[in-house]
Simulated assay, not measured.
Amino acid sequence: MAIAILTSGGDCAGMNPAIKQFVDYCFNKKIEPFLIYDGLEGLIDGNIKKASYDDVAGIMHEGGTKIRSSRSKRFFDLEYRKQAFENLQKHGIDKLIILGGDGSFRALDQFYKDFGIKFIGIPATIDNDIFGTEYCLGVDTALNIIREATDAIRDTSASFKRACVIETMGRDCGYLALVSAITCGAEVCMIPELDYDLEVIGKRLKQELKEGRKYIVCVVAEGCSKNRCTTTNELVRWLEEDVGIETRATILGHIQRGGNPTVYDRLMASEFVTFAIEEILKEDSESSVIVYNKSEFQFVSIDYVNSSKYEIKKELLDLARRLVN
C-alpha cells in the first residue's frame, strides 16, 4: 500500500511538521510513503519520490514546505489530470493527503471523480478562511509573528509619540487583523467584515490624544477596502492630516507565512495527519476534509466545505466593534 502527500497553494508554518509526521507514521503503519514535490504541478510532471527518514530529518522547526508548493492552472485540464493519474499509477499510489485550501480540495475532488484517487484534505492557510473548520494549520504561527512585529513597532511609536498602521494579510478575510488587534491592544482595527466611519473614529482618537494618549496602533487587513479608506497609505494620510499625529506604515507581507512553527501548529499538524491517515485507510471511507471544531476532529465532505463562505465568529467581531467607532 502506498500513500503520497503534497502541499498546494500558499505555504504556511506547520506544513513541514505535517510532512514529517506523515512519513514517520506511514513507516510505523508499514505503509510506503511518497512525497510529491511542487504541488499539483509536480503531480502532473511526475515529480514524485519515495520518502525516507532522511528526507524529513530536522524539518520540524522549519517554516514553509520542504516539498514545495504551486498553483496550477494546468490541473483544470483533463489531459493533464490524466497525466497526473498515470504518474501515480507508476508508483502504485492510490491515496493522497493534501495540505492546502478549498481551491486545492476542489481540484483533487475533480481528480477523484475522474480517476477514483481517494484523498483527505488538511486545511492549511494562514487566512483561516476555510468554511467548516475553526482552525487551519499555520494560523497560530502567523498570529505570533504579527504579535511580535506589532509589539516591536509599538515600542518605537510610543518613543516618538507616533501612530503606526500595520497591514496584515487577509485579502477576503480579516481574521488575522482582528485577532491581532484584540490581542495586541490596538486602538483601531479595520477589516472587511466590519463597517467603519473614519469621521467617528477620528473624533474618538483626537479626544483620546487630548486626554493623554501618546501613540496609536492601527491594524488593518489587506483586503479592507470599504468606505473612502482603500489603502494603507491613505490611512497614514488620514491619521496625519485629520487626526493630527505623525504616522508610519508597516506592511508585514510574506513574513507572516514563514517562521519557526509554534508548538501548537506542530501539535495540530501531527494530529491532523495522523487522523487523516487512519481515515483514508478505512475501506468504506470517502474523500473528505478533516476539520477541527469545539476541540474535536471531524471529517466533512468537499461539497460541505464548498457550500458556504467562511465567516468570523460573531463573538470575535463583537470584541472589535469598539475599535471601529
Rank of each mutant, 00 (worst) to 15 (best):
K203M: 15
V200R: 00
T274P: 03
L43W: 06
V300K: 15
V263W: 03
S180D: 05
M169N: 06
G174T: 09
V324K: 06
P123F: 11
M268H: 08
S70V: 05
A163I: 04
A320C: 06
S180M: 09
A269R: 01
T141M: 11
G174S: 04
K29C: 10
T7V: 11
T168L: 08
R106Q: 15
D38S: 12
I36H: 05
L235I: 06
L96W: 05
A124Q: 09
T65S: 15
Y37M: 01
G170F: 07
G9P: 03
N293H: 03
I145Q: 10
D38L: 07
T231G: 00
G42K: 06
L108D: 08
M60G: 05
L178V: 04
A276G: 11
Y25A: 02
E286Q: 13
D284S: 09
L96F: 08
F275H: 15
K161M: 09
A124P: 09
L88V: 00
S270E: 14
R162A: 12
K226R: 09
R213F: 01
S180R: 06
L198T: 14
D303S: 03
F22D: 08
L99A: 09
T247L: 12
I130T: 10
S69C: 04
M268P: 05
A124M: 11
E241I: 00
E241S: 11
V263I: 15
Y80G: 01
K50S: 10
L40Q: 07
Y53R: 15
D265Y: 05
E222T: 12
P192I: 12
K210G: 03
D114R: 05
N260L: 06
M169R: 09
E315L: 11
S52H: 02
F34T: 07
G63W: 12
T262E: 03
N144Y: 11
D77F: 10
K90W: 00
K113H: 07
L319W: 09
C224L: 04
F75S: 02
A107H: 14
G92E: 12
V300S: 08
K118Q: 13
E246R: 10
A107E: 14
Q207F: 11
S270V: 13
G253T: 00
D242K: 14
R74W: 05
F105S: 08
P33H: 02
Y292Q: 01
D109V: 01
G174L: 03
F272D: 00
I59G: 04
D197Q: 06
K203Q: 12
F85S: 00
I3Q: 06
D109I: 04
I3C: 10
E199L: 01
K294I: 10
R266S: 13
G121C: 07
D303G: 02
K95E: 09
E32G: 03
D172N: 14
D140I: 12
E240N: 05
E79Y: 07
Q89P: 03
G42D: 02
L143W: 12
F115M: 06
A13G: 01
A158D: 13
I48N: 04
G46A: 07
F27E: 15
F160T: 11
K95G: 08
D38R: 09
G121K: 08
W238T: 05
V305D: 05
G174C: 08
I277Q: 07
D55N: 14
D195P: 04
G121M: 11
I126R: 08
F297G: 02
P17L: 00
E271G: 00
L316N: 14
R162Y: 06
